[in-house]
Nucleic acid binder design. Sequence first.
DNA 1: AGAATTTAGTATGTACAGATACCAATTCCG
DNA 2: CGGAATTGGTATCTGTACATACTAAATTCT
Lengths: 153, 153
Amino acid sequence: MEDTGIRSVGATMPGHLIRRLHQLSTSVFTQRVREAGFDLTPVQFIALDALQQNPGIDQARLAEAIAKDRATVGAVTDRLVQKKLVKRVVSPRDKRARELTLTGAGRATLDALMPVVTELQAEILPGLTPEEYAQFIALAAKAARAAGPGDAG
Amino acid sequence: MEDTGIRSVGATMPGHLIRRLHQLSTSVFTQRVREAGFDLTPVQFIALDALQQNPGIDQARLAEAIAKDRATVGAVTDRLVQKKLVKRVVSPRDKRARELTLTGAGRATLDALMPVVTELQAEILPGLTPEEYAQFIALAAKAARAAGPGDAG
DNA sequence: AGAATTTAGTATGTACAGATACCAATTCCG
DNA sequence: CGGAATTGGTATCTGTACATACTAAATTCT
């Protein structure tokens, strides 16, 4: 790669840095998961994880757990149902709600992917020492916690 | 908000934390900018900033500067041209390329927004002390630099 | 010069992500 | 109990974001 003289932008802007890390994280995840023989996005994975930890919750509850809005979760759920990783049934207690559970395939996918995802996490923040990595996680978690669960809507 | 017993997910996963911060950052930016009387997304702002620093570059060069792919930059540029913040002309040297420059309105928008954006940055990482904030920026910048400019495409 | 490769931009398709609006079902409250 | 407010889900719209594939133009290599 030759030097084009183009200066990259936003090197000290937190928003831009976070956006960069976000796309890096997504691309590493998608690539490694595909190499493992699966076709699953980060959000789909997080949703499966949330459903394993909270079986039978409805879409609004899932949205809360993974910090997305209802419309997004509806679309993500559509894809997971279509891939037969999640079962969606109308709640007998509340006809508006749809209760979500992992299918056998969903559980199997999550089990197979968990070690892959654990291993890929270091790649998401390349060039950091283990101490720096831990520090970054701690700071990010603190900021995310301070932001609260309901801020993004 | 009452406790529903739903556990949130991914509290130690860097990818999920980064995704959370990304949405927080976007929502803070959009809200503050709208309050200032403008209708501009974070990516559109970064693009304007890049064009001010590198007037006359083409879309591929802009994509490189802001770390997006050509297709995305094409769409973003469409909107900036439509808003009359950017002028797009076919390069006389290379008939494939389109040279981009800020219009007067583009420069004015950038000037008006710069202090707003500077001020809003602290809000993107709430609950961090100034030292922690600086630390986070340093770590994020280090990781982004290690990732390299061409990794996400 | 001519063929092969690379590069710029666009088109299309998929997938988040939030805003808004809407319907249906439920809960709240008088 | 019955009207009002809330809640769950969907539909639509805008805007990233990337993959792939395609055209046209430029560059490279023989």
